[in-house]
Design a protein around this nucleic acid. Structure first.
Lengths: 197, 197, 197, 197
DNA sequence: AATGAATGAGCATTCATTCAT
DNA sequence: TATGAATGAATGCTCATTCAT
């Protein structure tokens, strides 16, 4: 009726709070890798396995699929927000950081396809939220005369467009195409690299 | 006891070659609808059901998932090829037809993300092939001075970019964004509609 | 991304419509046994195994847990309804049939605990429905002067009470206790046996 | 480097024997609540959480699921035993206390379904034991001419019958049905309330 | 040639139980 | 002695694919 383990094997067990944090990090790292290889729909079991933990641990830390994706992509968005908040930064530089994440994390590209209005009803809520955070970060730096400043939607449409261009087997390949995309848009982009301060 | 088959029962009735062709068409039409509603990962059983045929028929006509997707998207590509081959047509008009398919068929958008070089190893071969056929169709009409003519890759990068912009709940929504995308690229587009001759 | 069987093994397959009906019957029979042994919460996989079919077959025939339970208990209820509808029958005889099912099918007892008003919110809807059908069948035969006729609820309370008395390892044991219960209620019961006409 | 433990950290603080007893009581109280809300199959983790203790504490005090259920129901039985042992009490009054527990604690009802002979092989041993204790308490007060005195089994069959009648969403609902059950049995019941002396 | 039943692998999720801290 | 993280078995459910009829 109720489940009861049949095996007599000794079962390994927990490793305290420190291990918990380590596991959480391992799960996020594993998810990032698996997402890159198999997309956001990858089996959660694969992520747990890659992280070297049981299925339960994944659920303990992330109650549902969204929570995990959110945690993974949160880091990407945060870096963009930080970059946008630093002193004396201009839009081009932040677009460089954005582009770096687009080329680095295939899953992140998917999020930027979600315009703020939830494209298809299937678009997960977290994607919309993350997309809006990126938009807020960028818009503050958008100067009046900028090519993307004339119409309200243009900014995120352009970001989506670059996402559409970011394909290819290696990061370098993807970066080349992303740069070409921005060039075609006539928008200046700074160095494509992660934000570090 | 030599009982004659009274055959009161309606036999499913094989239907001959004509029915076979009709089934194939019904499957493609059903797949197009289901793909639009549930994406390319929709259960094949749903497609068979919508087409009003058994699962077996689907497998008879399309040995695997790719074959069906291919058949569905083949039609989109063929229309673009036909449009590009008509008399006195110019690039803008064909881009209009292309854009119509992008806004109409979400699945088709996915194909155009596949640049000719097979972006991710996961990209199915048919996507690459279809993408290349679109490229060939367009490139013949690309005049020397066109904004997308200066670098070899620009043409399909631009197409991919527009695909990236095509999000939204309704076709109208998606068309508006596609037009904005072409505008940002400074590329002229003709009427957004299917090709009919 | 999408699941694809890794194994190369030949997989057995279906056996036509006749087998389908046979499977359905096998599932119901298996469920009846398993319910008797492990209660209504028994794992569905155990039922499928006992019936000698795959999990999918169970879901094809019974979309959810309720549907299967319903199908199993439906037969019990139907016999009572039939008994109640036969010519010249009186309440005592139908109570005999009811009692037979109470002693035969432990799961059926559970259903009769569900008064028409859904005892706990957890009571499944089908239990309520089946219980009400039993009540309707019995009430038509309830004569004015009967010990259970004075108050509206008394009829099904009495049925529930007998259910509460029906415990014990063997059917005979349970029948003995059921008879004692009816005796304590001062209610006459006919022969305890299934309905056959 | 002989660093003194500054112990700024609040250690969970073992708490000594007093805390242990407090935890045990908290677990029983929590279990009673959870059982009432979710039935006897409720997750143990929920009980530990409600009690405000870790899972480990639960296992320290109650090695398995039965031990906890036993401890919870033990209290119900003890009250009945105490009531039956008080001066000048009669059967009707004790049945009132018994009925109160039946209406209050759904889990307790289940125990009373277990006649002394272990109805189904699945019946846990503790249920049999508790049931027998209730029987002993009641039988001593059973006067010779009582309606339940003529046959040995009648007493606990009647108790089981009332248990079978005790359904409904609220305690009041259940009490009304329990009273009706005793009325149908022609057995007098005193005030339905917990025993307090 | 079509039907649609059956198989069974795969993924999500829950929870009893252990054990490092 | 208490905590609560981790394990992993069990179960529910879905779907691609095969094949008897």
């Amino acid at each position: 009726m109720t489940q009861q383990p049949t095996s007599d094997e000794r079962r390994p067990a927990s490793g305290g709070q420190k291990a918990a944090a380590r596991n959480r990090a391992a799960l996020i790292a594993a998810a990032r890798e698996i997402y890159a290889e198999h997309g956001l729909d990858a089996p959660l079991s694969a992520i747990a396995r890659r992280a070297g933990v049981g299925q339960g641990v994944l659920y303990r830390h992330f109650p549902d699929r969204s929570a995990l994706a959110m945690a993974v992509l949160e880091e990407n968005v945060r870096q963009i927000e930080r970059a946008a908040a630093s002193d004396g930064v201009d839009l081009a530089q932040v677009l460089g950081v954005l582009t770096w994440h687009q080329t680095e994390s295939t899953a992140f590209v998917g999020v930027l396809h979600a315009d703020g209005a939830a494209s298809r009803s299937g678009t997960p809520a977290y994607a919309v939220e993350l997309s809006q955070r990126v938009e807020r970060a960028l818009r503050r730096l958008l100067p009046a005369g900028h090519p993307l400043a004339s119409q309200r939607e243009d900014l995120m449409i352009a970001v989506g467009m670059v996402s559409g261009a970011v394909t290819g087997p290696t990061r370098e390949h993807r970066e080349r195409r992303a740069r070409a995309a921005w060039r075609l848009l006539g928008v200046e982009v700074g160095p494509v690299r992660p934000y570090e301060e």
